[in-house]
Every structure is written in C-alpha cells, then in structure tokens.
C-alpha cells in the first residue's frame, strides 16, 4: 500500500500535480476509510460527556456490553490462523524453556530410579473446568513417559467423569508407548466427591505408597497446601501447576517447581510440540502485547487526566476507554 502511494505521488508530481496526495496513503478509498474512522471517534468522544452511553446495549442480537471480549476473541482467532499457516509453511517454532515442564520428565525419571510410583492429580474440579482439561492433556504426556520408563502411575480423581477420561487417556498413552501393561486399573482411583475427604484420601496414598514424585496439574482450592505439605513429608519431588491465583503462593512455597497461570496452559504445547498448539501459544502472546499497549495507553491517559483536570479532550478519551473496556 505504501509502495503504491509513493508511485502515485511520483506520477502526479511528474504530470504537474492533479491535487494534493495523502502523506501516508495514496488511494481515495483509504482516505475515505480514515475519514469515516475519524468521524466515528469524533462522534464517540462528543457523545461521551453527555452522560449517555456511546454504544447501545444491544445491536442485532449482539450484547454490546461484552464487545471487548468479542474483539479479543476475534483478534486471537485471527492471530492464531495467521500463525498456524505460517508455522505450516515451515517457520521454525520457538518456545521459551520452562523449568517446571522440564521437571516433569525429571520427576518421572527419579521415580523410575527409586522404584516408586508417580502420583498425578488432575485437579479437583469437574471436566467442565478448562483447567481440568489442561491437566488431562498433561496427564497424557506423563502417562506416555511413565510407560516408556516402565514406572507405575497412580491417578487420583475427585470426579467420576474425570476418572473415566483419565482411565482412557492413560490406557491410550501406555499403548502408544508400546507398554499397555503399564496401565493398571487399580491405580486409577476415585476417592470422594467431598473436598477434604478427597484430600485425606490422597494424603493416605502419599503416606502409604510413598510416591517418589507428585504432580498436581489442574484446579485446586484450599487443599493445595495440605497436599503439598504431605507430599513434602513423604519425601516426594513435587511439580504443581494451576491458574488459581489464590493457591499459587502455597504451591510456590511448598513445591519444587510450579507452573504459574499461562505456563500451565502452555505445558501441553511445550510437551507435544504440535505446530497447531504452539501457534496458539504465540497468538496468546500477541494478544498479551495488545492488552499491554491498551493498558499503557489507559494509564497514560488517566495520569494525564489527573494532572490536567481542565482538558476536556483527555477526559472524554478516558471516559470513552472506560466505557468500551
């Protein structure tokens, strides 16, 4: 686009000029688009201090209160599509090394050397929680590695559906590793639906069966510290991962390695190296960059509004940002 604009500028200047050209784009269509955008912003800014909403609450059955989320979703989907095709075209993938994910394989190797089992807990929530799905993703890799090393794997579940899916996942992973005998049905355990009864049951497994490694990947609540401390007492190496912000400090304090928030969701991409999954991690990073820019702009405007209370333009911009965000 910029190249065409420059070419048109040279042509018009050579002819003796047929009018002014835009400084950064040459086509009429682009100028019209920019004019429309400018008009829209001007309308929005002028409407904001009137006390009414800039945007209606609903438009064509779309709830405009949730417009920012829809925009984020569209941005993410677009970035993902672009990055996926770029990855398929041969662009190399790069993922930052995460000590917590590398530690998972080391933990299983440690269990193999000590001749003791690995204990895996895919969180305490049901299968409708995205963290549980992410935990089960990691379970498939853990089961594969455990089967390769011929290490027993115990999976403790709080929900029946999670147990059923975990059984299938471990069975399939053991088969894929060429060791179907590594899947032991008695090692797939449903303990209780009750939070603390489940915790007591897991503590019992840790103290009786003495796993060499405990891997907690999923959604946890107040039982997180009880599990981690009991795992420490039993002498196990512990790798935890959760997106629950309130439980992260306990895992960080009590476990050897912790996957924090987004690292937990990136773990499956890191372990599988599947291009389609890695592309989604990169798309997440792009979305984070956009959020960062929006936050910085908002902070700058809010600071400027506090310092310049009489500037109507800045106040209108701040109000507009508050409304759409």
């Amino acid at each position: 686009m910029n190249g065409q604009g420059n070419q048109q500028m040279r042509t018009r200047n050579a002819r003796g000029s047929e009018g002014r050209t835009c400084c950064f784009t040459g086509s009429v269509g682009h100028r019209l688009f920019l004019a429309l955008v400018a008009t829209g912003w001007a309308t929005a800014l002028s409407a904001a201090p009137a006390g009414g909403r800039v945007l209606p609450r609903e438009w064509n059955y779309i709830d405009l209160e949730k417009l920012p989320v829809l925009i984020a979703l569209v941005l993410f989907a677009s970035a993902y599509a672009f990055l996926y095709y770029r990855t398929k075209a041969g662009r190399p993938m790069r993922l930052r090394r995460l000590p917590g994910i590398d530690a998972i394989e080391e933990a299983i190797a440690r269990a193999t050397e000590m001749g003791r089992p690995v204990l895996f807990i895919p969180g305490i929530n049901d299968i409708d929680d995205i963290q549980t799905l992410a935990g089960i993703n990691i379970l498939s890799h853990v089961a594969y590695i455990a089967a390769e090393y011929d290490t027993p794997l115990i999976v403790a579940c709080r929900r029946s559906v999670v147990l059923t899916i975990s059984e299938e996942v471990v069975k399939a992973s053991s088969l894929a590793a060429g060791r179907p005998e590594n899947y032991i049905p008695n090692n797939m355990r449903y303990l209780s639906d009750d939070q603390f009864a489940f915790t007591a049951g897991v503590n019992g497994i840790m103290l009786r069966e003495r796993p060499a490694s405990c891997i907690y990947q999923g959604c946890f609540y107040s039982e997180s510290l009880i599990l981690a401390e009991t795992g420490y007492v039993s002498g196990a190496i512990q790798v935890a991962g959760t997106a629950n912000v309130a439980q992260l400090p306990f895992f960080v304090a009590a476990c050897d390695f912790t996957l924090i928030g987004e690292e937990f969701f990136a773990a499956s991409a890191y372990l599988s190296r599947d291009p389609s999954v890695v592309a989604s991690i990169e798309a997440s990073d792009w979305l984070k960059m956009i959020y960062l820019i929006v936050i910085l702009v908002g902070v700058a405007l809010a600071t400027a509004a506090a310092g310049l209370p009489h500037s109507q333009t800045i106040l209108q911009l701040v109000e507009f940002l508050k409304e759409i965000m």
Partner: peptide, 28 residues
C-alpha cells in the same frame, strides 16, 4: 497480571478444545 495471562491461556485452551485442535477427552 497473572490473572490476565491465565485468562488468555484459558481462551486459547478453550478454543483449541472446542474446534478439535486438542482432544484431551479422546486420546489414542
């Protein structure tokens, strides 16, 4: 900051599961 990162991770994981890019419930 952690919540924003985790929320974006949840969006990514959710979309991967919904559109069949990742099938954790169907390994094998």
């Amino acid at each position: 900051a952690i919540q924003i990162g985790a929320a974006i991770g949840m969006i990514a994981t959710g979309l991967r599961v919904i559109f069949g890019i990742e099938k954790p419930y169907l390994k094998g």
